[in-house]
Design a protein around this nucleic acid. Sequence first.
DNA 1: TTGAAATAGTACGGTAGGGGTTCTATATAG
DNA 2: CTATATAGAACCCCTACCGTACTATTTCAA
Lengths: 151, 151
Amino acid sequence: MLAMTKKTGYGLIAMTHLAQLGPEGLASAREIAEEYTIPLALLMNILKELAAGGYVQSVRGARGGYRIARPAASVNFVELMEILEGPMKLAECIRGEVDDDAHSKCKLMPKCPIADPVHRVHRKIRDFLSDLTLADVLQPKTREPAVAGEG
Amino acid sequence: MLAMTKKTGYGLIAMTHLAQLGPEGLASAREIAEEYTIPLALLMNILKELAAGGYVQSVRGARGGYRIARPAASVNFVELMEILEGPMKLAECIRGEVDDDAHSKCKLMPKCPIADPVHRVHRKIRDFLSDLTLADVLQPKTREPAVAGEG
DNA sequence: TTGAAATAGTACGGTAGGGGTTCTATATAG
DNA sequence: CTATATAGAACCCCTACCGTACTATTTCAA
């Protein structure tokens, strides 16, 4: 419960790897898969999705691979997660951007006593994850007011 | 992804309902299930687990039911979740209390570049959820330093 | 004393999504 | 022209989630 999928994990790893290589650095799916012991075919699928989402740029053909397409500081966790897994929803009743009638999907909405708290928790987690960027992974922030309160 | 299970949702609803009835108030699984349109058999299973965990006290026989067994302010979300779903783990490499070799389960731990950030996120979410209690659900907190930073 | 209503315990089953593989097509360096 | 890469799509297995069902036991009440 409240678990991150492996897909997201692998995607994060690939992105951090590419970010470390800088804006010109190129790495193939094979290289990354071997470096971190990730199933190659799966990582290829993930990189395809990241390319489709504009997070990495692909270079086809021999000696090809992927390079990062956006500054590390501009890529946050929520974006990445949602590209790979669809909208983040703590519960069914969380309404998305477009899908506005998410409430109607949950039969017990009209009387639900926990709708408000659940929505608050959802926003809290989402806000936190959207403040966290790839840059923070590369260089762990020691102290930062925006996401402070750490133990 | 990052979703709360329905089991936890139903459990929270049942707990808030019982909390509202006060320390003496009794409600049967049937009553709660009908009130919130929750599948009866499922809710019964959940209440059994909550009883086994000491969160509610059961009264057997006709006119029986459940009453809350702990002050609402002392029951936090993490506890409740973990009773119903097992240990909360954002990723496999999160080590539990007993299960100390969780690291070894993830083959890419030695080189994993995202282990630290993932652990930080895990702790952050966990800390937040453990500060949130049933009492907060009953009476939504308007402002509270310990969990401040809300939008 | 008997039946209805409740919990206790346990086992079972359907389904969706996570995790991973495979196949074909296309591009490109050497 | 071949090896190496990505592009696209389909496929499969397995687990966990969600829900059901059955039996046993307790207790109230007529």
